[in-house]
Design a protein around this nucleic acid. Structure first.
Length: 421
RNA sequence: GGAGAGAUGGCUGAGCGGUUGAAAGCACCGGUCUUGAAAACCGGCAAGGGGCGACCCUUCGUGAGUUCGAAUCUCACUCUCUCCGCCA
């Protein structure tokens, strides 16, 4: 949600910054609504003040047993105006909110301009592609031939875009999540949280998933939604609060299942477990002072990268261009892991600085040194998507005989085994 | 699912329909005292918004209603808690 005063101050700049994201200029409409609303509001407040003082007058006259008919008549006349002005103000305010809540965040000035993922900028690469002296297989070929990854039975149970992992692969998934949580809590200073995966719509509004992206989400049938990411409950941990200055930064991590309808992805990545309706993820969320959020963003990226480094998986980091960023983000780094079976880099983490975009929607503030109430900055990142990490291990650690080596750091979570089979 | 209780400022907690935006306490901030600290005493301390401004408006879970006037009365909803039943 945008600060209306910023739009008032420099509407041209506002429009230009959203054009970069493919949004039509709208400040003119916003400002005219805003002016109209404030006009109604000012008039309404004058009438309310008049009513209030007349009511006080009535009280005084009554206590002296004097006649109050005259005053009551006056108030009666004002009342109708107050009611209709209130309605008008509410309509204008609702319209204004509807416009504002559907506008994406403004990109940071250092975000590269671009239309789609082709315009993202590669920031760095780490490690090397593994060399195989045999034809490398894709993750589902490996998993299925092991008999530990079953899409057929999953579709019988739940339909398309689900998977059943068995035995060592199920354990590998568990080992990965445990390893990630241990890294983030022991080395990176995040506090592990166990959070609801069913949330109310105001929480999804807070993070920016609603009202615009309802079709990407699953509902529970009552008035709950299944979270598409733990970013939702973790970020909302600070909603409707004025935080203490020295409680910042806050760093949360959580391992949860995530649910996505993949409405816009029909026919995309249908084979394998790259794109599922349900997957698990270890999420990182930071709540910071505005002046610290850029630094916190870099720190978060390093925390996520650290997982891949420990697993010795080759990856690159890209800065998303204006056209490819998520709705709530002002700057996003994607980490893309190398998948030899797919012969490509695939997103395994996305780290975003949302600035005060989400905190405005959630009403989350802190008291600064001058005792002012300031919206906090919120950041979120995957640390990492567990399913995709499992894919990366299968494809990068595969052996010619159809086995998969277990990365050193995971072995202690898997009874010191060195191979899957 | 059945029965009941409740929702007030950072927290606890008062609040006859009329200077109650809200007592009191705690916490916090400033001051006096003290070599320093504690204690004691004095003072300050909700949020959002409008107006160039003096100021004004809104908010006591949310939304409607009654009234000249609502934290206080009525209705609906949401949420929390207790007991019973069921259950991981």
């Amino acid at each position: 949600m945008h600060d209306i005063s910023i739009i008032r101050t420099d509407p041209v700049k506002f429009d230009n910054s959203l054009i970069n994201r493919g949004v039509e200029p709208c400040s003119k409409n916003i400002i005219s609504k805003d002016v109209e609303k404030r006009k109604a509001q000012t008039l309404l407040q004058q009438l309310q003040a008049e009513r209030n003082s007349l009511s006080k007058e009535i009280n005084i006259l009554k206590s002296k047993n004097l006649d109050v008919k005259n005053q009551i008549n006056k108030v009666d006349k004002i009342k109708d105006q107050i009611i209709s002005l209130k309605e008008l103000e509410k309509i204008l305010d609702d319209e204004l909110k509807a416009i504002l809540s559907n506008l994406p965040n403004i990109p940071s000035s250092d975000v590269p301009f671009g239309k789609d993922e082709k315009d993202n900028i590669e920031l760095k690469k780490w490690g090397n592609k593994p060399q195989f002296n045999f034809k490398s297989k894709r993750h589902f070929e490996i998993g299925e031939s092991m008999g530990l990854m079953n899409f057929d039975i999953a579709s019988k149970i739940s339909g398309s875009r689900f998977v059943v992992l068995k035995g060592m692969l199920a354990k590998l998934e568990r080992a990965l999540s445990q390893f990630m949580l241990d890294q983030h809590t022991n080395k990176n200073g995040y506090t592990e949280m166990n959070v609801p995966v069913l949330v109310k719509d105001h929480s999804l509004f807070g993070t920016g998933n609603l009202p615009k992206f309802a079709e990407d989400l699953f509902t529970s049938g009552d008035d709950h939604w299944l979270i598409p990411t733990a970013e939702v409950p973790l970020t909302n941990l600070v909603r409707e609060q004025i935080l203490d200055l020295n409680s910042l930064p806050m760093r949360f991590t959580s391992y949860t299942p995530c649910f996505r309808s993949e409405a816009g992805a029909a026919g995309k990545d249908t084979r394998g477990m790259l794109r599922q309706h349900q997957f698990t993820k270890v999420e990182l969320v930071s709540i910071s002072k505005p002046e610290d959020s850029e630094k916190e963003h870099e720190r978060m990226l390093l925390s996520a990268e650290g997982i891949l480094q420990e697993l010795d998986l080759h990856y690159r980091v890209v800065t998303l261009c204006t056209g490819d960023m998520g709705f709530a983000s002002k700057k996003t780094y994607d980490i893309e892991v190398w998948l030899p079976g797919e012969n490509t880099y695939r997103e395994i983490s996305s780290c975003s600085n949302c600035g005060d975009f989400q905190s405005r929607r959630m009403n989350a503030k802190y008291k600064n040194e001058k005792n002012e109430n300031i919206f906090v900055h919120t950041l979120n990142g995957s640390g990492l998507a567990v399913g995709r990490t499992l894919i990366a291990i299968l494809e990068n650690y595969q052996t010619e005989d159809g086995n998969v080596a277990i990365p050193k750091v995971l072995q202690k979570y898997l009874n010191n085994k060195t191979f899957i089979i």
